[in-house]
């Protein structure tokens, strides 16, 4: 992988790149279009999106580290089953943790916490990266991808909450008379907002490639 603009950072350029690529160049949502189920379903408010993103990032980091450290121990034939087992464990832990933080938040995120188990983003990082790389690199990769996912979910959640509920993080941002666009907090709004961000992202990349 060619290091891009990250060479000014002092660390080893190739490992910094493992971190940076998930944030932008290979962003899980905007570029790889992975993990669409939580992206569309629970990004209806900034706080839900952030909580979901952080929960996913935690599971991603922990499972990547564990998969990477066990990569010489897991036989090839049962690797997927093992990965799922590891991922499901961390998802269960996150589920308990969120319940312990706030019952309301847990109610809002609902079944989508448990569905992190089948989030293709996590399995794809375990299979494509962690099973072939060192623990350190896997952790950096997961951190980058996880934060990239948080960033993308937040972009969606913020737009949807501002337009659909006239607020951000529950704080009202528009005057009383503002008409909320209810569609934005409905599932359909998730598709529209995602399409809008993908459009902006691709448009930006095209322009940059031309220049």
């Amino acid at each position: 992988m060619t290091p891009t603009k990250t060479t000014d950072l002092k660390a080893d350029p190739s490992s910094t790149d493992e971190f940076i690529k998930g944030l932008w160049r290979e962003n899980p949502v905007f570029v790889q279009v992975l993990g669409m189920c939580p992206t569309l379903a629970v990004s209806n408010s900034a706080i839900n999106a952030l909580a979901m993103g952080l929960a996913t990032a935690f599971v991603l980091i922990m499972s990547n580290v564990l998969v990477s450290s066990l990569r010489n121990f897991i036989p090839k034939q049962v690797r997927i089953a093992s990965y799922i087992l590891i991922i499901a464990t961390f998802v269960t832990m996150v589920d308990y943790a969120i319940q312990a933080i706030s019952v309301d938040l847990h109610k809002n995120l609902g079944a989508f916490i448990s569905l992190i188990v089948v989030n293709c983003l996590i399995l794809s990082r375990a299979e494509a990266f962690a099973s072939k790389n060192t623990i350190g690199k896997s952790a950096l990769d997961a951190l980058g991808m996880g934060l990239g996912f948080v960033f993308a979910l937040f972009c969606l959640g913020a737009v949807r909450e501002i337009l659909g509920n006239a607020s951000i993080f529950g704080i009202t941002v528009f005057p009383e008379s503002f008409q909320e666009w209810i569609i934005m907090i409905l599932p359909a709004g998730g598709f529209f907002t995602l399409a809008f961000w993908l459009f902006l992202f691709n448009n930006y990349k095209l322009k940059k490639a031309k220049a």
């Binding site: 121990f73 093992s82 269960t92 308990y96 943790a97």
Partner: peptide
């Protein structure tokens, strides 16, 4: 061995977090 090993680790982690929360 691999599956049982991972299963044991996972079970341990789940029980710990369950008891903790």
């Amino acid at each position: 061995i691999a599956m049982v090993g991972i299963g044991v680790i996972c079970a341990l982690l789940i029980v710990l977090s369950y008891e903790g929360t």
